[in-house]
């Protein structure tokens, strides 16, 4: 988001060749093939060439993360996410159609318990995609998200949203097992409140 020049990965900018990451090349080639819409030698070779060119022109620093994907938990994460999207879509639609009523919104602070950038990113993306919540500010230093909640109503609605975000964070950690260290349990009073 913000380009802090003092970040170590900016200082020791990797040489261009280090931008050639096999996973990125394969993904870009797959996108190319999908865009062409047919799987042939022409599209596969063309995709690989374009992918290598893109990686050389726009080199990204190599991400260091120890993912430990647990398929069952990942499935649960996706299923719960889709269910949340459906439920929240109905709620937001209902709020929208009550034309006379002004929604009572809230901006809440959610201080994530893990200190992993990946978890922060995934949680922010997923909360944003679920209707009714919008990330207005994300602090990488403290791993804090500020959410705008549509029609939170009162303190109870706010607490519910906070609980849901913590639950989502827990599901993300269980699914990806990102290099987070253990989830701190010290803040459990926020969950139970």
């Amino acid at each position: 988001m913000r380009t802090a020049p003092q970040r170590p990965d900016e200082l020791s900018r990797p040489p261009r060749v280090a931008g050639l990451q096999p996973a990125a090349v394969l993904w870009l080639a797959a996108v190319w093939v999908a865009l062409w819409g047919d799987l042939s030698a022409f599209t596969v070779v063309g995709g690989l060439v374009v992918a290598v060119a893109v990686c050389l022109v726009f080199p990204f620093p190599r991400l260091r993360m120890r993912l430990r994907v647990r398929p069952l938990w990942l499935g649960w994460l996706v299923v719960r996410f889709l269910a949340d999207v459906v439920v929240a879509s109905v709620q937001v639609s209902w709020t929208t159609l009550q034309l006379r009523r002004e929604p009572r919104n809230a901006v809440i602070e959610v201080d994530l318990r893990t200190d992993s950038d990946l978890v922060l990113t995934v949680v922010a993306e997923m909360t944003s995609l679920v209707p009714g919540s919008l990330v207005v500010e994300a602090r990488r230093s403290t791993h804090t998200l500020f959410l705008h909640v549509l029609d939170a109503g009162d303190q109870r609605g706010v607490d519910k949203m906070r609980r849901q975000t913590f639950a989502l964070e827990r599901r993300v950690v269980m699914a990806l097992g990102a290099d987070t260290g253990p989830v701190q349990e010290t803040r459990s009073e926020e969950v139970s409140s």
Binding site: E102, P103, R104, N105, A106, V107, I108, E109, A124, E125, S128, L129, L134, V135, V136, E137, A138, F146, H148, A152, G153, D154, Q155, G157, V158
Partner: peptide, 28 residues
């Protein structure tokens, strides 16, 4: 989508384009 909506929302909040009278809680 989340990134686009985040950038727009962030800019508008910082520019003060928020109906604060409609907020029940404002931590930010």
């Amino acid at each position: 989508t989340p990134i686009g909506s985040h950038m727009v929302g962030r800019a508008s909040f910082r520019a003060g384009q928020v109906r604060r009278d409609l907020l029940v809680v404002d931590d930010l």
